[in-house]
């Protein structure tokens, strides 16, 4: 009788278990967060976003809500969806364990979007405590000032930072100083000067723009074409088809050289500022990765 009763209960439980069909059975909150951490460890940031979007965060406890909101912002940051990252990172509450990290990363996202004013505002309105985080804030503000080419503000912020001996800020600080010096010494080229120089000596405008190799190459090619046109002019005469053909080719290259020099200065200036801004942002990221 008793074995039969046992068998009967087992059959009931098995049937109930097999009755669970394809609908999603909600996982406990702790398991859910554990799964999301599992996805983060595998750098599956897109899946992290998908999983968090699926959840109704309002139904969760505050501690899980805060963690998931932070993870949503964090995964958006890694997917380079910076606008979304800023929205979620700024939702972090001061009591939360990741509050400081959230605020600093929200600010660096705004910097990456070239919204330096917003980046500064995030830093200045955050509840930052402790000397390390305060120095880090000053460092980020200094980086933003450098990106705006505001060397005066940069110098005053760097003076405040000179008291800091934190290892995470020392090397990036020196690198930013070098970039500030480079920016201070840089004299942007003038397009009309470049065009004028190329009109006088083909290729000289490109050398002025900093492209020495291109300038020499342009001088040689235009020079050879000019020599060819002159040779035909002097030996075949001005009305000969060979003179006209050679002259046309030379004229095209000559005008093209002036045109190219005019635009190459603009490109050179743009390339310099792009390279500088990239390097400033890299050095601004380094202490964040080290401290957090």
């Amino acid at each position: 009788m008793q074995p039969l009763a046992t068998l009967f209960i087992l059959i009931i439980f098995y049937s109930a278990a097999m009755g669970q069909q394809g609908d999603e059975t909600p996982m406990p909150a702790e398991q859910q967060v554990g799964f999301i951490h599992h996805l983060m460890r595998q750098n599956n940031h897109h899946q992290v976003s998908m999983e968090i979007d699926r959840l109704d965060l309002q139904k969760l406890d505050d501690k899980w809500q805060d963690s998931l909101i932070f993870l949503k912002g964090w995964s958006a940051y890694w997917q380079k969806d910076l606008d979304t990252a800023i929205v979620y990172l700024l939702k972090s509450r001061p009591e939360h364990h990741f509050y400081s990290r959230s605020r600093f990363y929200a600010s660096i996202c705004a910097t990456s979007l070239s919204d330096y004013q917003r980046s500064d505002s995030i830093l200045l309105t955050s509840h930052i405590e402790g000397p390390v985080y305060q120095h880090l804030r000053d460092f980020q503000l200094a980086g933003n000032a450098l990106l705006r080419h505001d060397l005066g503000t940069y110098d005053s912020l760097r003076e405040r930072l000179s008291a800091s001996t934190h290892y995470a800020l020392e090397e990036p600080g020196k690198n930013l100083d070098m970039l500030a010096e480079e920016l201070h010494n840089y004299k942007p080229g003038n397009r009309f000067v470049a065009a004028g120089l190329s009109a006088v000596i083909p290729g000289l405008g490109k050398v002025y723009a900093g492209k020495h190799g291109e300038g020499v190459s342009t001088l040689l090619v235009t020079g050879m074409l000019g020599a060819m046109a002159y040779e035909n002019y002097s030996k075949a005469g001005p009305a000969n088809w060979k003179t006209l053909a050679a002259g046309s080719i030379f004229a095209t290259y000559y005008i093209g050289n002036i045109w190219g020099s005019y635009f190459s200065v603009q490109m050179q200036n743009q390339q310099f500022y792009d390279r500088l801004h990239n390097q400033i942002q890299i050095h601004m990221h380094v202490p964040l990765r080290t401290i957090f």
Binding site: A5, Y14, A17, G22, T25
Partner: peptide, 27 residues
């Protein structure tokens, strides 16, 4: 028999959950 059922049925529930997840993913 409560304890016997708990220990014997736990795997059923576990497999059932995984099987239902396979079905869901397949859908």
């Amino acid at each position: 028999y409560k304890f016997i059922c708990m220990f014997l049925c736990a795997p059923f529930f576990s497999f059932a959950q995984i099987d239902s997840l396979f079905d869901l993913a397949g859908q």
